[in-house]
Design a protein around this nucleic acid. Structure first.
Lengths: 206, 206
DNA sequence: TTGGCCTCTTTCCAACGTCAAGATTGCGGG
DNA sequence: CCCGCAATCTTGACGTTGGAAAGAGGCCAA
Protein backbone atom coordinates (compact mmCIF):
# COMPACT_ATOMS: atom_id res chain seq x y z
CA UNK A 1 0.00 0.00 0.00
CA UNK A 2 2.57 2.51 1.16
CA UNK A 3 5.39 1.76 -1.22
CA UNK A 4 5.17 3.30 -4.67
CA UNK A 5 5.46 0.98 -7.63
CA UNK A 6 8.54 2.78 -8.92
CA UNK A 7 11.37 1.08 -7.13
CA UNK A 8 14.85 0.13 -8.02
CA UNK A 9 16.76 -2.99 -7.28
CA UNK A 10 15.91 -2.75 -3.62
CA UNK A 11 12.41 -3.15 -2.34
CA UNK A 12 12.62 -0.99 0.73
CA UNK A 13 10.30 -2.92 3.00
CA UNK A 14 10.21 -6.44 1.71
CA UNK A 15 9.88 -8.11 5.06
CA UNK A 16 6.69 -6.26 5.84
CA UNK A 17 5.38 -6.80 2.32
CA UNK A 18 5.95 -10.54 2.64
CA UNK A 19 4.08 -10.66 5.93
CA UNK A 20 1.15 -8.76 4.41
CA UNK A 21 1.08 -10.92 1.29
CA UNK A 22 1.48 -14.08 3.33
CA UNK A 23 -1.36 -13.25 5.59
CA UNK A 24 -3.71 -12.66 2.68
CA UNK A 25 -2.47 -15.72 0.90
CA UNK A 26 -3.10 -18.00 3.85
CA UNK A 27 -6.71 -16.90 4.01
CA UNK A 28 -7.15 -17.25 0.26
CA UNK A 29 -5.46 -20.56 -0.41
CA UNK A 30 -5.58 -22.27 2.96
CA UNK A 31 -2.71 -23.60 5.01
CA UNK A 32 -1.57 -26.18 2.50
CA UNK A 33 -1.98 -23.75 -0.39
CA UNK A 34 0.45 -21.32 1.17
CA UNK A 35 3.51 -20.85 -1.01
CA UNK A 36 6.68 -18.85 -0.53
CA UNK A 37 7.02 -18.22 -4.25
CA UNK A 38 3.51 -16.79 -4.45
CA UNK A 39 4.33 -14.45 -1.58
CA UNK A 40 7.39 -13.28 -3.47
CA UNK A 41 5.30 -12.83 -6.61
CA UNK A 42 2.79 -10.65 -4.79
CA UNK A 43 5.57 -8.56 -3.35
CA UNK A 44 6.98 -8.29 -6.87
CA UNK A 45 10.36 -9.72 -6.10
CA UNK A 46 12.18 -12.79 -7.30
CA UNK A 47 11.42 -16.17 -5.77
CA UNK A 48 14.66 -16.24 -3.80
CA UNK A 49 14.39 -12.77 -2.32
CA UNK A 50 12.46 -13.85 0.80
CA UNK A 51 15.41 -15.95 1.94
CA UNK A 52 17.18 -12.78 3.10
CA UNK A 53 14.32 -11.99 5.51
CA UNK A 54 13.02 -15.43 6.46
CA UNK A 55 15.25 -18.46 6.74
CA UNK A 56 12.53 -20.74 5.43
CA UNK A 57 8.86 -20.88 4.58
CA UNK A 58 8.06 -22.10 8.06
CA UNK A 59 9.94 -19.13 9.41
CA UNK A 60 7.46 -16.82 7.69
CA UNK A 61 4.55 -18.89 8.97
CA UNK A 62 5.93 -18.63 12.50
CA UNK A 63 6.00 -14.87 12.15
CA UNK A 64 2.39 -14.83 10.93
CA UNK A 65 1.39 -16.91 13.94
CA UNK A 66 3.34 -14.66 16.30
CA UNK A 67 1.57 -11.56 15.03
CA UNK A 68 -1.71 -13.43 15.12
CA UNK A 69 -1.38 -14.06 18.84
CA UNK A 70 -0.53 -10.42 19.41
CA UNK A 71 -3.67 -9.35 17.58
CA UNK A 72 -5.78 -11.96 19.31
CA UNK A 73 -4.62 -10.68 22.67
CA UNK A 74 -5.35 -7.11 21.61
CA UNK A 75 -8.87 -8.02 20.46
CA UNK A 76 -9.58 -9.74 23.76
CA UNK A 77 -8.25 -6.81 25.74
CA UNK A 78 -10.34 -4.32 23.78
CA UNK A 79 -13.56 -6.22 24.34
CA UNK A 80 -12.82 -6.81 28.00
CA UNK A 81 -12.14 -3.14 28.60
CA UNK A 82 -15.40 -2.25 26.97
CA UNK A 83 -17.04 -3.93 29.96
CA UNK A 84 -14.55 -2.54 32.43
CA UNK A 85 -17.12 -0.91 34.68
CA UNK A 86 -19.49 -3.83 34.74
CA UNK A 87 -19.18 -6.89 36.90
CA UNK A 88 -16.17 -9.23 36.42
CA UNK A 89 -18.27 -11.91 34.71
CA UNK A 90 -19.04 -9.43 31.95
CA UNK A 91 -15.35 -8.93 31.34
CA UNK A 92 -14.96 -12.69 31.10
CA UNK A 93 -17.65 -12.74 28.43
CA UNK A 94 -15.86 -9.83 26.77
CA UNK A 95 -12.68 -11.84 26.49
CA UNK A 96 -14.66 -14.51 24.72
CA UNK A 97 -16.24 -12.01 22.36
CA UNK A 98 -12.82 -10.64 21.40
CA UNK A 99 -11.49 -14.17 20.97
CA UNK A 100 -14.31 -15.13 18.65
CA UNK A 101 -14.24 -11.86 16.75
CA UNK A 102 -10.58 -12.31 15.88
CA UNK A 103 -11.13 -15.92 14.85
CA UNK A 104 -14.08 -15.00 12.66
CA UNK A 105 -12.09 -12.24 10.96
CA UNK A 106 -9.02 -14.43 10.41
CA UNK A 107 -10.33 -17.99 10.24
CA UNK A 108 -7.41 -19.69 8.55
CA UNK A 109 -4.73 -17.86 10.50
CA UNK A 110 -6.59 -18.72 13.68
CA UNK A 111 -6.68 -22.38 12.77
CA UNK A 112 -3.00 -22.24 11.90
CA UNK A 113 -2.23 -20.72 15.29
CA UNK A 114 -3.94 -23.66 16.95
CA UNK A 115 -2.71 -26.50 14.77
CA UNK A 116 1.00 -26.01 15.11
CA UNK A 117 1.49 -29.54 16.39
CA UNK A 118 -0.46 -31.05 13.53
CA UNK A 119 1.47 -28.93 11.05
CA UNK A 120 4.87 -29.48 12.66
CA UNK A 121 5.47 -25.77 13.08
CA UNK A 122 8.25 -25.30 15.61
CA UNK A 123 8.03 -22.12 17.65
CA UNK A 124 11.17 -19.99 17.78
CA UNK A 125 12.64 -19.67 21.22
CA UNK A 126 11.44 -16.62 23.06
CA UNK A 127 8.14 -17.01 21.25
CA UNK A 128 5.48 -17.11 23.90
CA UNK A 129 2.70 -18.36 21.70
CA UNK A 130 -0.65 -18.36 23.47
CA UNK A 131 0.87 -17.47 26.81
CA UNK A 132 -0.62 -13.97 26.71
CA UNK A 133 -4.07 -15.46 26.19
CA UNK A 134 -3.60 -17.61 29.26
CA UNK A 135 -2.46 -14.61 31.29
CA UNK A 136 -5.38 -12.49 30.16
CA UNK A 137 -7.81 -15.23 31.11
CA UNK A 138 -6.18 -15.82 34.46
CA UNK A 139 -6.29 -12.12 35.24
CA UNK A 140 -10.00 -11.73 34.67
CA UNK A 141 -10.74 -15.01 36.43
CA UNK A 142 -8.91 -13.64 39.43
CA UNK A 143 -11.55 -10.92 39.64
CA UNK A 144 -14.35 -13.42 39.23
CA UNK A 145 -13.27 -16.15 41.63
CA UNK A 146 -10.00 -14.88 43.02
CA UNK A 147 -10.77 -16.31 46.43
CA UNK A 148 -11.09 -19.88 45.20
CA UNK A 149 -8.48 -22.59 45.56
CA UNK A 150 -5.84 -23.04 42.88
CA UNK A 151 -7.41 -26.26 41.69
CA UNK A 152 -10.77 -24.60 41.20
CA UNK A 153 -9.22 -21.65 39.38
CA UNK A 154 -7.42 -24.01 37.07
CA UNK A 155 -10.66 -25.82 36.35
CA UNK A 156 -12.34 -22.49 35.70
CA UNK A 157 -9.60 -21.49 33.26
CA UNK A 158 -9.89 -24.83 31.47
CA UNK A 159 -13.64 -24.45 31.13
CA UNK A 160 -13.53 -20.84 30.00
CA UNK A 161 -10.85 -21.35 27.36
CA UNK A 162 -12.26 -24.67 26.16
CA UNK A 163 -15.74 -23.25 25.75
CA UNK A 164 -14.78 -20.19 23.74
CA UNK A 165 -12.19 -22.07 21.70
CA UNK A 166 -14.39 -25.04 21.00
CA UNK A 167 -17.39 -22.98 20.03
CA UNK A 168 -15.66 -20.71 17.54
CA UNK A 169 -13.65 -23.59 16.10
CA UNK A 170 -16.81 -25.54 15.39
CA UNK A 171 -18.34 -22.44 13.87
CA UNK A 172 -15.37 -21.95 11.56
CA UNK A 173 -15.67 -25.57 10.47
CA UNK A 174 -19.35 -25.12 9.76
CA UNK A 175 -20.37 -27.61 12.42
CA UNK A 176 -22.26 -24.97 14.37
CA UNK A 177 -24.61 -22.40 12.89
CA UNK A 178 -24.06 -23.15 9.23
CA UNK A 179 -27.63 -22.14 8.44
CA UNK A 180 -27.84 -19.32 10.93
CA UNK A 181 -27.71 -15.67 10.06
CA UNK A 182 -24.74 -13.75 11.34
CA UNK A 183 -27.01 -12.16 13.93
CA UNK A 184 -28.39 -15.46 15.17
CA UNK A 185 -24.93 -16.96 15.28
CA UNK A 186 -23.64 -14.16 17.46
CA UNK A 187 -26.54 -14.76 19.81
CA UNK A 188 -25.62 -18.43 20.03
CA UNK A 189 -22.05 -17.52 20.81
CA UNK A 190 -23.09 -15.05 23.48
CA UNK A 191 -25.41 -17.62 25.01
CA UNK A 192 -22.56 -20.12 25.23
CA UNK A 193 -20.27 -17.53 26.78
CA UNK A 194 -22.92 -16.46 29.28
CA UNK A 195 -23.56 -20.04 30.34
CA UNK A 196 -19.82 -20.56 30.67
CA UNK A 197 -19.45 -17.45 32.80
CA UNK A 198 -22.25 -18.57 35.06
CA UNK A 199 -20.72 -22.02 35.44
CA UNK A 200 -17.35 -20.51 36.27
CA UNK A 201 -18.94 -18.22 38.82
CA UNK A 202 -20.79 -21.08 40.42
CA UNK A 203 -17.62 -23.18 40.59
CA UNK A 204 -16.34 -21.12 43.49
CA UNK A 205 -19.70 -21.02 45.30
CA UNK A 206 -21.02 -24.54 45.49
CA UNK B 1 0.35 -56.77 7.31
CA UNK B 2 -1.82 -59.32 5.53
CA UNK B 3 -0.29 -59.29 2.10
CA UNK B 4 2.89 -61.26 1.60
CA UNK B 5 5.86 -59.50 0.09
CA UNK B 6 5.92 -61.78 -2.91
CA UNK B 7 3.54 -60.20 -5.34
CA UNK B 8 3.44 -59.77 -9.03
CA UNK B 9 2.52 -56.83 -11.14
CA UNK B 10 -0.70 -56.36 -9.25
CA UNK B 11 -0.76 -55.36 -5.64
CA UNK B 12 -3.99 -56.99 -4.63
CA UNK B 13 -5.16 -54.51 -2.04
CA UNK B 14 -3.45 -51.27 -2.85
CA UNK B 15 -6.33 -49.05 -1.82
CA UNK B 16 -6.32 -50.40 1.70
CA UNK B 17 -2.53 -50.30 1.85
CA UNK B 18 -2.56 -46.63 0.85
CA UNK B 19 -5.08 -45.79 3.54
CA UNK B 20 -3.00 -47.57 6.16
CA UNK B 21 0.23 -45.95 5.03
CA UNK B 22 -1.44 -42.57 4.74
CA UNK B 23 -2.83 -42.70 8.20
CA UNK B 24 0.54 -43.50 9.71
CA UNK B 25 2.23 -40.89 7.55
CA UNK B 26 -0.10 -38.10 8.63
CA UNK B 27 0.68 -38.77 12.27
CA UNK B 28 4.41 -38.98 11.58
CA UNK B 29 4.95 -36.03 9.29
CA UNK B 30 2.00 -33.78 10.05
CA UNK B 31 -0.63 -32.48 7.70
CA UNK B 32 1.72 -30.49 5.51
CA UNK B 33 4.29 -33.28 5.49
CA UNK B 34 1.79 -35.69 4.00
CA UNK B 35 2.88 -36.86 0.57
CA UNK B 36 1.24 -39.09 -1.99
CA UNK B 37 4.57 -40.34 -3.25
CA UNK B 38 5.63 -41.38 0.24
CA UNK B 39 2.37 -43.31 0.61
CA UNK B 40 3.14 -45.09 -2.64
CA UNK B 41 6.68 -45.80 -1.51
CA UNK B 42 5.43 -47.39 1.73
CA UNK B 43 2.98 -49.49 -0.20
CA UNK B 44 5.85 -50.50 -2.49
CA UNK B 45 4.29 -49.33 -5.70
CA UNK B 46 5.23 -46.68 -8.21
CA UNK B 47 4.32 -43.08 -7.50
CA UNK B 48 1.57 -43.05 -10.11
CA UNK B 49 -0.17 -46.18 -8.89
CA UNK B 50 -2.38 -44.41 -6.33
CA UNK B 51 -4.09 -42.47 -9.11
CA UNK B 52 -6.11 -45.57 -9.98
CA UNK B 53 -7.61 -45.66 -6.49
CA UNK B 54 -7.68 -42.00 -5.51
CA UNK B 55 -8.23 -39.23 -8.02
CA UNK B 56 -5.87 -36.92 -6.15
CA UNK B 57 -3.96 -36.54 -2.94
CA UNK B 58 -6.89 -34.68 -1.40
CA UNK B 59 -9.09 -37.59 -2.34
CA UNK B 60 -7.01 -39.85 -0.12
CA UNK B 61 -7.11 -37.29 2.68
CA UNK B 62 -10.89 -37.13 2.38
CA UNK B 63 -11.03 -40.88 2.82
CA UNK B 64 -8.81 -40.71 5.90
CA UNK B 65 -11.12 -38.06 7.35
CA UNK B 66 -14.21 -40.12 6.51
CA UNK B 67 -12.87 -43.17 8.33
CA UNK B 68 -11.74 -40.93 11.16
CA UNK B 69 -15.27 -39.75 11.78
CA UNK B 70 -16.53 -43.33 11.70
CA UNK B 71 -14.00 -44.30 14.35
CA UNK B 72 -14.69 -41.21 16.42
CA UNK B 73 -18.37 -42.07 16.44
CA UNK B 74 -17.58 -45.64 17.43
CA UNK B 75 -15.35 -44.52 20.28
CA UNK B 76 -18.05 -42.21 21.58
CA UNK B 77 -20.68 -44.93 21.34
CA UNK B 78 -18.52 -47.43 23.20
CA UNK B 79 -17.87 -45.10 26.10
CA UNK B 80 -21.49 -44.01 26.30
CA UNK B 81 -22.71 -47.59 26.41
CA UNK B 82 -20.30 -48.34 29.21
CA UNK B 83 -22.45 -45.99 31.30
CA UNK B 84 -25.72 -47.26 29.84
CA UNK B 85 -27.28 -48.19 33.15
CA UNK B 86 -26.30 -45.02 34.93
CA UNK B 87 -28.05 -41.70 34.74
CA UNK B 88 -28.18 -39.86 31.40
CA UNK B 89 -25.64 -37.26 32.49
CA UNK B 90 -23.07 -40.04 32.87
CA UNK B 91 -23.67 -41.06 29.29
CA UNK B 92 -23.06 -37.47 28.22
CA UNK B 93 -19.73 -37.54 30.03
CA UNK B 94 -19.06 -40.89 28.37
CA UNK B 95 -19.48 -39.34 24.94
CA UNK B 96 -16.89 -36.77 25.90
CA UNK B 97 -14.50 -39.43 27.16
CA UNK B 98 -14.76 -41.32 23.87
CA UNK B 99 -14.31 -38.10 21.94
CA UNK B 100 -11.16 -37.20 23.80
CA UNK B 101 -9.78 -40.72 23.74
CA UNK B 102 -9.99 -40.85 19.96
CA UNK B 103 -8.40 -37.42 19.61
CA UNK B 104 -5.57 -38.33 21.96
CA UNK B 105 -4.90 -41.54 20.05
CA UNK B 106 -5.00 -39.85 16.64
CA UNK B 107 -4.01 -36.25 17.26
CA UNK B 108 -3.06 -35.20 13.75
CA UNK B 109 -5.93 -36.98 12.05
CA UNK B 110 -8.30 -35.42 14.54
CA UNK B 111 -6.96 -31.94 13.80
CA UNK B 112 -7.24 -32.67 10.09
CA UNK B 113 -10.87 -33.71 10.55
CA UNK B 114 -11.57 -30.35 12.15
CA UNK B 115 -9.52 -28.09 9.93
CA UNK B 116 -11.02 -28.92 6.58
CA UNK B 117 -11.93 -25.32 5.88
CA UNK B 118 -8.45 -24.08 6.70
CA UNK B 119 -6.95 -26.80 4.53
CA UNK B 120 -9.40 -26.40 1.66
CA UNK B 121 -10.45 -30.03 1.82
CA UNK B 122 -13.72 -30.39 -0.03
CA UNK B 123 -15.98 -33.14 1.26
CA UNK B 124 -17.28 -35.58 -1.33
CA UNK B 125 -21.02 -35.49 -1.77
CA UNK B 126 -22.78 -38.04 0.36
CA UNK B 127 -20.06 -37.58 2.94
CA UNK B 128 -21.77 -36.74 6.17
CA UNK B 129 -18.67 -35.57 8.02
CA UNK B 130 -19.37 -34.88 11.67
CA UNK B 131 -23.10 -35.40 11.30
CA UNK B 132 -22.99 -38.65 13.25
CA UNK B 133 -21.30 -36.87 16.12
CA UNK B 134 -24.08 -34.33 16.18
CA UNK B 135 -26.72 -37.08 16.14
CA UNK B 136 -25.04 -38.98 18.94
CA UNK B 137 -24.88 -35.86 21.05
CA UNK B 138 -28.49 -34.92 20.34
CA UNK B 139 -29.63 -38.42 21.24
CA UNK B 140 -28.04 -38.44 24.67
CA UNK B 141 -29.09 -34.86 25.33
CA UNK B 142 -32.64 -35.95 24.64
CA UNK B 143 -32.40 -38.25 27.63
CA UNK B 144 -30.88 -35.53 29.77
CA UNK B 145 -33.12 -32.60 28.96
CA UNK B 146 -35.58 -33.98 26.44
CA UNK B 147 -38.41 -31.96 27.88
CA UNK B 148 -36.71 -28.63 27.25
CA UNK B 149 -37.49 -26.21 24.46
CA UNK B 150 -35.68 -26.53 21.14
CA UNK B 151 -33.69 -23.40 21.78
CA UNK B 152 -32.43 -24.69 25.10
CA UNK B 153 -31.54 -28.05 23.60
CA UNK B 154 -29.58 -26.33 20.88
CA UNK B 155 -27.73 -24.30 23.45
CA UNK B 156 -27.03 -27.46 25.42
CA UNK B 157 -25.64 -29.17 22.33
CA UNK B 158 -23.45 -26.15 21.56
CA UNK B 159 -22.06 -26.12 25.09
CA UNK B 160 -21.47 -29.85 25.24
CA UNK B 161 -19.69 -30.09 21.91
CA UNK B 162 -17.74 -26.88 22.37
CA UNK B 163 -16.48 -27.92 25.79
CA UNK B 164 -15.24 -31.35 24.81
CA UNK B 165 -13.84 -30.16 21.51
CA UNK B 166 -12.15 -27.09 22.92
CA UNK B 167 -10.61 -28.91 25.84
CA UNK B 168 -9.03 -31.74 23.88
CA UNK B 169 -7.90 -29.41 21.09
CA UNK B 170 -6.06 -27.22 23.59
CA UNK B 171 -4.55 -30.33 25.13
CA UNK B 172 -3.29 -31.53 21.75
CA UNK B 173 -1.73 -28.15 21.14
CA UNK B 174 -0.02 -28.26 24.51
CA UNK B 175 -1.95 -25.26 25.81
CA UNK B 176 -3.56 -27.29 28.56
CA UNK B 177 -1.77 -29.74 30.80
CA UNK B 178 1.63 -29.69 29.15
CA UNK B 179 3.29 -30.39 32.47
CA UNK B 180 0.65 -32.72 33.82
CA UNK B 181 0.99 -36.45 34.06
CA UNK B 182 -1.34 -38.47 31.90
CA UNK B 183 -3.31 -39.33 35.02
CA UNK B 184 -3.67 -35.73 36.14
CA UNK B 185 -4.61 -34.66 32.63
CA UNK B 186 -7.40 -37.22 32.48
CA UNK B 187 -8.70 -35.90 35.78
CA UNK B 188 -8.74 -32.37 34.38
CA UNK B 189 -10.64 -33.57 31.33
CA UNK B 190 -13.16 -35.43 33.45
CA UNK B 191 -13.62 -32.37 35.66
CA UNK B 192 -14.36 -30.24 32.62
CA UNK B 193 -16.82 -32.80 31.30
CA UNK B 194 -18.54 -33.12 34.68
CA UNK B 195 -18.94 -29.35 34.99
CA UNK B 196 -20.27 -29.26 31.45
CA UNK B 197 -22.80 -32.00 32.19
CA UNK B 198 -23.96 -30.19 35.28
CA UNK B 199 -24.36 -26.94 33.36
CA UNK B 200 -26.33 -28.69 30.66
CA UNK B 201 -28.55 -30.36 33.22
CA UNK B 202 -29.18 -27.07 34.94
CA UNK B 203 -30.01 -25.36 31.66
CA UNK B 204 -33.39 -27.01 31.55
CA UNK B 205 -34.13 -26.43 35.26
CA UNK B 206 -33.53 -22.76 35.95
C1' DT C 1 -7.99 -69.40 -26.06
C1' DT C 2 -8.53 -64.82 -26.60
C1' DG C 3 -10.14 -60.27 -26.19
C1' DG C 4 -10.83 -56.57 -23.17
C1' DC C 5 -10.38 -54.10 -19.05
C1' DC C 6 -8.36 -53.01 -14.81
C1' DT C 7 -3.95 -52.33 -12.51
C1' DC C 8 0.57 -50.81 -12.37
C1' DT C 9 4.97 -48.69 -14.50
C1' DT C 10 7.53 -45.41 -17.01
C1' DT C 11 8.17 -41.02 -18.63
C1' DC C 12 7.31 -36.29 -18.72
C1' DC C 13 5.92 -31.57 -17.08
C1' DA C 14 5.25 -27.44 -14.23
C1' DA C 15 5.68 -25.76 -9.64
C1' DC C 16 7.73 -25.90 -5.28
C1' DG C 17 11.62 -24.92 -1.40
C1' DT C 18 16.25 -24.22 -1.01
C1' DC C 19 21.10 -23.30 -2.23
C1' DA C 20 24.99 -21.01 -4.60
C1' DA C 21 26.82 -17.37 -7.29
C1' DG C 22 26.64 -13.06 -9.25
C1' DA C 23 24.56 -8.31 -9.95
C1' DT C 24 23.08 -3.94 -7.86
C1' DT C 25 22.39 -0.67 -4.51
C1' DG C 26 22.63 2.41 -0.53
C1' DC C 27 25.53 4.02 3.09
C1' DG C 28 29.24 5.37 6.20
C1' DG C 29 34.19 6.59 6.60
C1' DG C 30 37.88 8.78 4.24
C1' DC D 1 32.73 13.98 -2.77
C1' DC D 2 33.60 9.23 -3.58
C1' DC D 3 34.83 4.77 -2.63
C1' DG D 4 34.51 0.35 -0.84
C1' DC D 5 31.63 -2.83 1.48
C1' DA D 6 27.82 -5.15 3.32
C1' DA D 7 23.10 -5.80 2.67
C1' DT D 8 19.69 -6.77 -0.71
C1' DC D 9 17.93 -8.73 -4.78
C1' DT D 10 18.34 -11.72 -9.21
C1' DT D 11 19.54 -15.64 -11.85
C1' DG D 12 20.16 -20.31 -12.32
C1' DA D 13 20.30 -24.89 -10.63
C1' DC D 14 18.98 -29.25 -7.97
C1' DG D 15 15.97 -32.50 -5.99
C1' DT D 16 11.13 -33.31 -4.77
C1' DT D 17 6.29 -32.97 -5.42
C1' DG D 18 1.36 -33.78 -7.77
C1' DG D 19 -0.45 -34.87 -11.89
C1' DA D 20 -1.07 -36.35 -17.02
C1' DA D 21 -0.04 -39.49 -20.77
C1' DA D 22 1.20 -43.69 -22.77
C1' DG D 23 2.54 -48.28 -22.57
C1' DA D 24 3.23 -52.94 -20.25
C1' DG D 25 1.34 -56.75 -17.55
C1' DG D 26 -2.09 -59.79 -15.66
C1' DC D 27 -6.89 -61.44 -14.67
C1' DC D 28 -11.30 -63.01 -16.12
C1' DA D 29 -15.34 -63.72 -18.72
C1' DA D 30 -16.97 -65.04 -23.22
Amino acid sequence: MTRSKARGYHHGDLREALVTAGRKLVEEKGIRGFTLRECARRAEVSHAAPAHHFASMDDLLVELVRRGFAELTAAMTTEAERAADEEPASRLVGLGVGYMAFAAANPTLFQLMFSREANHIEPKEGDEGAESVRRLLAGVLDDVIGDAADEVRQQAADLAWATMHGFITLVLEGEIGRRDSSRALKARGLAALAAMAETVTRLARP
